[in-house]
């Protein structure tokens, strides 16, 4: 049985993070001087004048990177419960995980060979 009280530390951390974040925003709002000029409120672009609209279409490579990230993320999700009980399971589980990883390595090497991991 998973008791709800086991999650109290996570809840406390969440609350603390929210409170600290809001508090910092609030403090800087009241204490900080606020004198905006046109130059100051312009978007910062390495000290240069920004050119063109900020919301340009991104190249499709970003999509590829995001999908690859999701796939490897899901791999990690499979590792997690396995790693929790790994010591109890013995050799069979280790072999199972090796097969799992080898099949995934096929995809990984395909991505590598096709240059999907490179950024030019």
């Amino acid at each position: 049985m998973v008791a709800l009280s086991e999650f109290a530390p996570i809840g406390a951390m969440l609350l603390l993070a929210i409170v600290v974040g809001l508090l910092l925003l609030f403090i800087s709002r009241i204490l900080g001087p606020n004198k905006p000029t046109e130059r100051k409120s312009a978007p910062y672009e390495s000290g240069m004048k920004p050119i063109g609209p900020g919301t340009r279409r991104l190249p499709v490579r970003f999509y590829l990177i995001a999908v690859l990230f999701i796939l490897f993320d899901i791999e990690v999700i499979f590792f997690l419960p396995w790693a929790v009980v790994f010591r109890k399971l013995g050799l069979f589980a280790l072999v199972e995980m090796f097969i799992f990883i080898i099949i995934l390595l096929v995809g990984y090497f395909y991505a590598w060979r096709k240059g999907a991991l490179e950024w030019e």
């Binding site: 690859l68 796939l71 791999e75 799992f100 099949i103 995934l104 990984y108 395909y110 991505a111 096709k114």
Partner: peptide, 16 residues
């Protein structure tokens, strides 16, 4: 569990 890895690989190849 093992089939899931095949599925993930297929998705990877498809995305590329």
């Amino acid at each position: 569990f093992e089939v899931a890895s095949v599925l993930l690989t297929a998705a990877m190849v498809g995305a590329i």
